[in-house]
Computed example of a mutant assay.
Amino acid sequence: MTVQTLDAAAAPPAGAGAGGPRQRRRRDRPGIAFLFLSPWVCGALLLTVGPMLASLYLSFTDYDLFTTPRWVGLDNYRRLFTDDPRFLASAAVTAKYVLLSVPLKLAAALAVALLLNRPRRGQGFYRSSLYAPSLLGTGVALALVWRALFTDEGVVDSLTNTVGWDSGGWINEPDYALYVLIILAVWQFGAPMVIFLAGLKQIPQELYDAAAVDGAGRWRTFRSVTLPMLSPIILFNLVLETIHAFQAFTPAFVVSGGRGGPGNSTLFYTLYLYERGFSQFRMGYASAMAWLLLLTVAVITALFFGTARRWVFYSGEDK
């Protein structure tokens, strides 16, 4: 038998194999993929991209929902910084909320995740119980309960009265009202806790064994092994929780009664945006505020990722 005969016998039949005409025809039909993607593309264009572009246009207009938008250029943006003290107050309150709630929430989530990472009896019960507050979300019902706890006749005020401190109700005091919302945010640490717990499970035990052989204590092991290996998870949680904190609205709206009080102490940026857009019908002005918020979050997120190379360690990469 010749070599040509052997090659012919080993060759696949026409139309079969990776390079056959039938397989080639299947690869050359991208219309099927676009057909399945079309619902998502239509939804993104109609429900996300379209409204975003419309709000960008409205941010340069004077629009009150009832009349035709009137082009004013950059006037809305100029007035935000030069002729609106409540805008500056809302930005300051939101910045303080983000700077306090996000680190405290992540610290609480990591601390509890470290405790739950150790084998113990009833571990499933503890994990479910500590995650439960996050399942409640930030809805109106939870905010109403939180408001009732911190009024002048609430449980918290009754407890502080027993030690001789009459706060008069935390939500009624400008110095304490914001901390009510910060405590609420920190209390709902379940989501980042679960993510931290998953990250802890992925750290190789060999690293801890090597640290123990070198004589490292718990703090040194945590600082030199746990934190570097968890740094990608920390970055992920940091970005998500920062964005979530900037978007906080419902707790502030319910606890403050929609007024941002007392003394603008809980006047979140989103709450003031809602007031301008849906109470005063200044949709052009509210659109400008929305785009400033988007740009602020985008810049902060870019800073996180831009500085990540200095403190985020990915396993397997050379430092």
Rank of each mutant, 00 (worst) to 15 (best):
A8Y: 03
P12E: 12
P12T: 09
G20L: 03
R22D: 11
G31Q: 10
G31N: 04
A33V: 15
L37H: 05
S38I: 08
A44K: 01
L46G: 06
L47M: 14
V49T: 05
Y57G: 10
F60L: 15
T61A: 14
G73W: 08
R78C: 04
L80N: 09
R86P: 00
T94I: 04
V102S: 05
A111D: 01
R121N: 01
L130P: 00
L130E: 01
A132R: 01
P133E: 09
T138A: 11
L142S: 15
L149M: 14
F150T: 09
D152M: 03
V156P: 07
W170L: 15
I183H: 05
L184M: 15
A191Y: 06
V194E: 02
L207E: 10
A210R: 10
G215F: 05
R223V: 11
P228F: 00
M229E: 13
F236D: 05
L238W: 06
V239L: 12
Q247F: 02
A248F: 07
V254R: 02
V255R: 04
G263H: 04
N264V: 09
T270V: 14
L273Q: 13
E275M: 12
R276W: 00
Q280K: 09
A288F: 10
M289G: 02
W291L: 12
L292P: 00
L303E: 09
L303K: 02
F304Y: 15
F305C: 01
G306N: 08
T307L: 14
F313Y: 14
E317M: 12
D318G: 03
K319I: 05
